[in-house]
Amino acid sequence: MIDAGTISTTFAPLEQLLAERKSTHGEYRDHAAYTQAIKSLCRSSDNWSSLQDHQKETLEMIAHKIGRILAGDPNFDDHWRDISGYAKLTADRLAGVA
Rank of each mutant, 00 (worst) to 15 (best):
S45A: 10
K22Y: 06
G67C: 02
S45Y: 04
D53H: 14
Q52D: 14
W80G: 10
Y34T: 00
E15A: 13
S23V: 07
H64W: 01
L94R: 08
F11S: 06
R29I: 05
H31I: 00
T35W: 01
D3Q: 05
A87F: 11
L14W: 08
G26C: 03
L89A: 14
D53R: 14
E15Q: 14
K22D: 09
S84E: 13
K39W: 04
S44I: 01
S23L: 15
D77C: 06
R29Q: 07
G85I: 08
A95N: 12
D82A: 10
E15C: 09
N47P: 03
A98C: 07
G67Y: 04
Q55G: 12
M1A: 13
M61Y: 06
D30E: 11
T6K: 10
I2E: 08
S40Y: 04
A87S: 14
Y34K: 08
K22R: 14
F11H: 07
G96R: 07
Q52A: 15
Q36N: 13
P74I: 09
D53C: 07
I7H: 00
C42E: 09
T9M: 09
I83R: 04
D92K: 13
G26H: 04
I69V: 15
A37H: 05
Q16L: 09
S45P: 01
Q36Y: 07
G96C: 02
V97F: 01
A19E: 14
N75E: 15
A63Q: 00
A95H: 08
M61L: 13
S40F: 03
W48H: 08
G26D: 03
D53Y: 13
I38W: 03
A98G: 07
A19P: 08
D77L: 12
T35L: 00
R29L: 04
D73I: 03
I62E: 01
R29H: 05
I38D: 01
H64Q: 04
D92P: 07
E60D: 09
Y28R: 11
R29V: 04
Q55R: 11
W48L: 10
H79F: 06
L17W: 12
A12H: 11
M1Y: 04
E27I: 02
T6P: 00
F11P: 02
A4N: 09
E20M: 09
N47G: 12
H64P: 00
L18Q: 11
S49I: 09
E27W: 00
I83S: 04
T9N: 10
E15Y: 10
T9W: 05
S49K: 15
A37G: 05
A19V: 02
R68I: 00
I38A: 02
S8N: 09
L14D: 10
E57Q: 15
S49N: 15
P74V: 05
F11E: 05
